[in-house]
Amino acid sequence: MAILEVRDLKMYYKTLRGHVKAVDSVSFDIERGKALGIAGESGCGKTSMAVTVLRLLPSNGKIHGGSVKLDGIDIVKLDDEEFRKSVRWKKISMVFQGAMNALNPVHRVGDQIVEAILAHEDVPHQEAATRAEELLDMVGINPKRYKEYPHEFSGGMKQRVVIAMALACNPDVIIADEPTTALDVMVQSQVLKAMEDLRKRLDLSMMLITHDLSVIAQTCDNIAIMYAGKIVEYGNVIDVFDNPTHPYGMGLVKSFPNIKAERTRVRSLPGFPPNLLAPPKGCRFHPRCPLAGDICMEEEPELIEIGSNSHKVACHKVDMLERGVNIWEQ
């Protein structure tokens, strides 16, 4: 059974000009010990989805329906206090996008890890401190640096501290939101490798958000491609990369000529991502889709399984696409 089961999740931001539908009927699973990669253009709702799962919403963000089942329990229904105590960090921890400032500048790094442990476990301070040292060691930081402040660490080292902190309470799921985008290219691959090794060793389940498809290709088991607050294609990494079927997914994968090559330049698709305040009617991708027809402007396509292996696509023209038309080459 999946450790995390998200069904029909909706989260909108209330603004003066209406609701921003940043997460709109999103469904996916993360299997135990597996990694799900989330890809999509900037602004499509990846971060919003992550913070919805952890219920770390800004004051104008609100969940408008759906369920998030963690080990079978719907955590959307838990009250705030219970969610804080029993889910946050203990079951689901997170490595943030703004890694550079994720640590508080006025507290020692070791204390920040200890604090996470003590918030959830009734252990003596000394024991938590020992564990913090072990965690630092595990992510490749000299445990002696326990007493140092964040400004004494380089960017990559800070992100390692954050990863150590994310592991502190043995969580079931780790969400990593663009964990390396703020780092130097060289450091990026080191940090990713450290993370991947740990994940394998500790048999962790992970949600890895990135707009870098090569990272997903190298580290994840499954991939979900998001467009304008929705998942448009979902499946096994091999299936999706070998056989991208949704027009948007196809465009995204094709813009990475060689998945194994790191950091190829992304050739962006023509057109702009839609305004989430008033997303296009029907299929949200239709203004940019070469295949768009009348039905696409009227009816929203559902995410349906194609072929086998739970490869899913949300497109009205899926039959045509499965036959293998290549729509992005003139």
Partner: peptide, 13 residues
């Protein structure tokens, strides 16, 4: 700041 989101994510009161 980001570190406040981290602190909340850690499940601190």
């Amino acid at each position: 700041q980001d570190y406040i989101v981290t602190a909340r994510a850690k499940g601190l009161p």
